[in-house]
Every structure is written in C-alpha cells, then in structure tokens.
Nucleic acid binder design. Structure first.
Length: 677
RNA sequence: UGCGGGGUGGAGCAGUGGUAGCUCGUUGGGCUCAUAACCCAAAGGUCGGGGGUUCGAAUCCUCCCUCCGCUACCA
C-alpha cells in the first residue's frame, strides 16, 4: 500500500430534513469515527470533515408544509444533529453546513471554473411548471395517470403500480403534488456535466487502478460505466440553494448533488487555512465514507467534477456500506420507523459505547443487516458485560484484594504465560490490518478476543487457588492480566472511547498511542491502580420492552394513517360520466404475459366484440381461476400497446387499503355487453 | 424491464475450487476471583432451488426463485 503523508476523511453529509438514526450511524458515522480515531492514535496527520446537506427540493417542501422558511428547517436539524453527533462521541474535526457563506463561495467558484473552462453543455428543455407555487417541478413531484396501467397515482419518473419508468411528459392529466394544480410546460435553460466525456478516464481510474474497492462499490461503478454515461444537469430551477453564478441564471441554483460533495471542500476550508494541503497534494489520502445509495455520486460524478476542475486530488477509497434494517423492516424517516440518535441518548444515558458496539458488531458491510433490540440487549449483556466488563472487573478486584491495588512485578514465566503475552501483540496486528482494510466488524471481534484471552488465561491459571500455595506465581499471573487490561485501553479505544476513558482512570494511566499496543510492560510493578466500578451494566428486559413497544406504536400509527380512505376527487358533470362506456363482460382466456410479474393477457367477450385486454393484476389472480368469470370493463378507453400486445379497455377492480385488488362484477348474471350506469 | 449487491447451523456473520468456520443462543460438565459473570465439551448446516464444468464446487458456468439498491423521504 502506498504510504501517504496525511489523510482526509469525509463522511456523507446527512440531509438536514430529519434527525440522525441508527442507519446513518451503522452505515457511515460509526465506521468512519473508528477509522479516524485509529489514525489519530497512530499519530497520523488526519482531518475528518462532515456537515449538514441543506439544499434541495425536499427541504423547501417541508418548509412550505410547516409554514416556515427553508433556513428554519435546516437550522433546526443542523443543531439537533450536530449536538447528537457530539454527544455520541462522533469526533468530526468539523461539522459544517452547506448554507454557510464559505460554502456558497466555494461551490460558486467551483462551478465558475468549470464554466470558464467550457466544461459544461448548455441545453434548453421543456419542463413542467407549477404556476401557483411558482416553481418548476422535479419528476417526483408530478403525479398523473399512468399510460400503461391506468394507475392515477403514477409519479413523473415511475409508476409504482406497473413498475414502468416514465418521464413526466408521459403522464395523462399531470398534476403538481405541491399545489394539486395542473402544471404547464415551460422552456428552461440548464447546464450539464458531460459525464460521457470522462468515461474513458473513469474506466481506467476505477476499473483498472482501483480493483481493491469493495465488491458492492466496484460492481456498481462497473455497471454504470459499461452502460455508458450520459450528461447530467447540474442546475435546477429553485430559489433555495447556491445560485448559478453566471448571467441569465436568475432563479436557478446548483443541483444538490453538485453542491453537496463540494461541501467537503468548504468544510475543510472552514476548518483550516491549510486546507489546500489536504485537497491538492497527491500525498494526501482521501477516503469517502458513504452508504450504498451514494456510490455513483462519490465514485463517478464527484470524481468527474474534480477531474474536470483539475487542481484537486481524487478519493483513494470509497468504503460504502449497505443498509441497516430495524426489526425486519426498512428504516424510514417518513414512517417514523427508526431509532433516533437524539432519543437514544436521552433514554440510554451514558451508554454511547453500547450502541457503538452493537452497530459496529452488526455493521452492514457486505449486505443489508438487521438491528433488533433483542440483539442489542444480547450484545450488551453477553459480550460487553460478560466478556469485556467481567474480565476487567475480575482483574481489578483481584489486584485490589491481593495487593491493595499495587501492580505486582512479573516474576518467572512459564511457556503458557509467554504464549499469552505473545498473543497480545498478534491481536493488535490483527485489529490493525482489519481496520486498514475497512473490516470494522472483524476488527472489533479481534479486539474483544483480547478480553476473551484474558478470561481464559485467568480460568486456566486459577490465581484464586494458587494464592494460598504459590504467591510468587500469582504475582506473575496478575501482572500479565493487568498488562492485558492496559492493552485493552488502547485496542478498544477506537471502538469504545467512553468506556476506555473510564478504564484508564481506574488504572490511573494516561492515553497511550497505537504503537504502545502489544507492549506488555505498560504498567510497571508498584504502579498504584484505583478502585474499579462496573464498566458496563446489564440491560434488563423492561428497558428493551419499552423500546419495542415504542416501535409497535409507530407501526400502529402508520397503519392507521394508511387506513385512511384516499381523498375524494373533484365533482364531474353527468356528461363526463356518460362518456365512459362501462360494460359487463366475460373472461374467455387468461394467461400470464411472459417475463413480467404483474401482467395478465385476457381475452374477453364484452358483447360488442371479443377483445384482448392486458391488465396488471397477475399478483392477485391465477389465470385459470379467472376463466369464465363475469367482470366489468371500461370499453372505450383508448387502445394501448403493453409489452407489444394491444390492450383495448380496462378491467375494473377495487383496490383495498393494502393494495389488494378485487374484481368488480355485476352482482347477478347479465348478458355480456350490458351497459353499466 | 435492466444493472449492481446479497440468500451459509436457532440468530447474526466469515469463507471465491481441495476434509464447512466464527460470535451469540441451546444442552451437558467444570470453576467460584468476577455483574448467575468465566472456562471446557457437545448437539445443530443436503451452503436459496434446478441443471452443467471438474478427480473434486458454498466457491466456476447456466437457468430460476427471493431480498435490497439504482428510483420521493433516505446511509
């Protein structure tokens, strides 16, 4: 591995429209904190930057909804999250924010430099505009009827009912989700970063020069590059963000994904006048810690920006984690399905390390993992308390009992003693190489193995028996146990900083450096240690049950919200109604459309003729069960090709609250083609 | 739909061609310094499913099933 002079660590900027939860922590902030602490202990020159990402449409919408300004929204979450990180021991060198003046300056300059170099394409396009809200609408904020399946609640980028991806112009009867009004098309000018231009360079830089990146990261990059990169717009029509700093760009701001990663640079500038050393010197090793949803921005788009700008270094590695689930369900801010950091800190005071431990031990490094409160409890009670806390406690209690807290000298050692002493050094090496490779889970396990080693050593040597017969040997045993304890304060420090600080106080030592780990003479004979307290306490069932109960309440609240009947639609005239040609019909044939999950091809007799209708109901009905069934259809819907099959009309179904479909049929038998009115 | 990453004993995870491993849990035993903590041992897996390559496959190829991401909020 190349030896670097200094390190620049960045962690994904959390979006400032909600609080921090355990998913953020396990994916990004706990691993990066461990890594930063580890490097600092090694005496490396390292800075670690982060901050709130405060721009983008969702924040403006949240502000609108609550009747406050976007700035008030971001102020609220910036302060909340900054404090929560601090209290949790996340040791950023700076936690900045993208609404800072220095960020506006940095992002503007960055854009201008690319602009002046002629790196951007300028293009006009037609986009939907909400005249009432006076804003252009991002794809996701336009809803309308899906041209494929008739779902009236399809989004501008995708219909969730039939799964087809759409563009806003495909939607029938588009409406703005901001105001509910019909948006109009308006011409607008934007700047595009021509990613296709950087494709050959990216190909070499990632696919050849960074084969060591994690499989999930490398795989996703390869897939993007292989598919061919497209120019991406870097600006948006919005009044919240960094204004595009060129003439004629009124009402336009930099798109969040363009401005957010520049936030790493702004934060560094804010932190130190020496910032250029960290961003421009190839002797600096830059590492981006992110979650898997951010891979393409950090591995493709941001590097392309940096490369186009020309004066900055590129990331050496981007260790992205997968996602953490909570009690078998996706973590979701909007559904309140999360363990919020600020709440945890209040409800489990002084237990930062327990959560740090549980999240690191179960970090989603190679695949999505699940956090459960029972697992959290078990990790605390069976590992932190039983293995680490217990070893420390028995060592310190025995030392106090036998020697009134005075560290005994190490007398003669046997082969087993030497083996144990040697194992300490090996475990240190192992923790170190795992941390170097971003394998935090394995590193933590090895660190805990040091405590396991200690427990086994005590059990094998049984000083409580020997103390009556062979006090000299007991001195050696206790000396070695104390050296292991001192080593724990180093090796566990990156993972459990709060507890190791306590432990150092109890054994009355200062902070060691990482290089001291493996040294088995950290505590000289005669050194006086203090009285121990409990390093970790058992967590009883009641505390866990309260948390589980809290989640169940959130789930119930969600179900209650989902159970609300969808809002009624606008009044229509009788004329509008009578334009619909709804008829009874009978299904003659039914078969699945190959290579689809939801589509059935139906041949039906509707009285007028025998026709084919393709319908997205395959998940709810077996084709053979449908044959012979009488149903209701809209017969005069304009025909449309779906999967190459012409579909003439639409099957009427009632959709239940949970999305289940039920056929709408005449209650008694009628002849096919009977009109329904 | 496509692409990427997953699917391994009760739970959580390692393991990319050569006798299936770790942590926790379970069962039995030992110990009693220690927060009923610690130590030892055992039970428990046809490695998502089918087909193929190979002397040999969890590992390579192929088809399929399934979860997650790319795709609002969001790590």
């Amino acid at each position: 591995m190349k030896k670097f002079k200094r390190h620049l660590i960045t962690s994904a900027l959390p979006y400032a429209n909600g609080p921090i939860h355990i998913g953020h922590l396990a994916g990004v902030y706990v691993p990066s904190d461990i890594y930063a602490r580890f490097l600092r202990m090694k005496g490396e020159d390292v800075i670690w930057v982060c901050g709130s990402d405060e721009h983008g449409v969702p924040i403006t919408l949240k502000a609108r909804k609550e009747g406050i300004t976007p700035q008030q929204v971001v102020d609220r979450y910036h302060e909340l999250n900054k404090k929560a990180f601090e209290d949790f021991g996340i040791s950023f060198d700076i936690y900045s924010r993208t609404s800072n003046k220095i960020h506006y300056q940095t992002a503007s300059d960055f854009f201008l430099k690319l602009y002046n170099k002629g790196e951007f394409l300028e293009k006009t396009s037609n986009q939907y505009y909400d005249e009432e809200a006076k804003c252009f609408l991002a794809d996701r904020y336009i809803m309308g009827t899906c041209p494929h399946c008739g779902n009236e609640n399809a989004y501008g980028d995708q219909c969730e009912k039939c799964g087809t991806s759409l563009s806003p112009n495909d939607l029938i009867n588009p409406r703005s989700t901001v105001s509910g009004n019909k948006p109009v098309l308006r011409e607008t000018l934007h700047w595009y970063l021509p990613l296709d231009k950087y494709e050959p360079w990216l190909k070499k830089w990632i696919l050849e020069d960074h084969r060591e990146w994690k499989a999930n990261v490398y795989g996703q990059c390869k897939s993007w590059i292989d598919q061919g990169l497209q120019p991406r717009a870097v600006s948006r029509d919005l009044d919240w963000g960094v204004p595009v700093p060129v003439k004629g760009a009124d009402g336009k701001v930099l798109y969040v994904w363009f401005d957010a990663p520049i936030g790493y640079i702004s934060a560094t500038r804010e932190l130190t006048p020496d910032w250029e050393k960290y961003w421009r010197d190839p002797e600096t090793r830059m590492i981006h810690f992110i979650g898997k949803d951010n891979i393409v921005f950090h591995c493709i788009i941001f590097p392309a920006m940096l490369n186009a700008e020309g004066s900055f270094i590129l990331p050496d590695n981007v260790p992205a984690n997968e996602f953490l689930n909570l009690e078998n369900d996706k973590i979701s801010t909007s559904r309140n399905w999360a363990v919020w950091l600020h709440e945890y800190l209040e409800e489990f005071p002084g237990k930062q390390d327990v959560l740090r431990y549980a999240l690191c031990a179960n970090a989603p490094e190679t695949k999505d993992n699940d956090f459960t409160w029972k697992d959290f409890q078990a990790r605390n009670n069976n590992e932190l308390v039983a293995i680490l806390g217990n070893f420390v406690n028995r060592t310190l209690v025995l030392t106090n009992n036998y020697y009134s807290g005075k560290v005994p000298g190490r007398g003669p050692t046997n082969a087993y003693d030497l083996e144990v002493l040697e194992a300490v050094g090996k475990l240190k090496e192992s923790v170190e190489s795992n941390l170097d490779a971003f394998r935090f889970r394995e590193a933590l396990k090895e660190a805990m193995n040091l405590a396991r080693l200690g427990n086994k050593y005590l059990a094998d040597r049984e000083p409580w028996k020997l103390v009556k017969t062979d006090p000299a040997t007991v001195e050696t045993i206790m000396n070695i146990s104390l050296q292991i304890t001192a080593n724990l304060t180093i090796i566990c420090e990156p993972f459990l900083p709060f507890s190791m600080k306590k432990l150092r106080e109890w054994i009355r030592v200062g902070e060691f450096g990482w290089k001291d780990a493996g040294n088995t003479d950290l505590l000289p004979g005669g050194h006086l240690i203090g009285k121990p307290e409990l390093l970790f306490e058992k967590i009883e069932d009641e505390k866990i049950d309260i948390q589980i109960e809290k989640l169940m309440l959130a789930k119930k609240a969600n179900e209650a919200a989902a159970a609300c009947v969808v809002p009624g639609k606008d009044t229509i005239t009788f004329d509008d109604f009578s334009r619909l040609d709804i008829r009874s019909a009978t299904i003659l044939e039914a078969e699945k459309v190959p290579k689809t999950t939801k589509l059935l091809k139906l041949k039906i007799d509707c009285g007028l003729d025998t026709r084919t209708i393709v319908s997205g109901i395959a998940e709810f009905f077996e084709p053979r069960d449908l044959i012979g069934k009488q149903i209701s259809i809209v017969a005069n819907l304009e025909p449309r090709k779906i999967k190459g099959i012409e579909s003439k009309g639409m099957i009427l179904c009632a959709e239940d609250r949970d999305g289940k479909l039920v056929l709408v049929a005449p209650a008694g038998n009628v002849s096919n083609g009977s009109t329904i009115k």
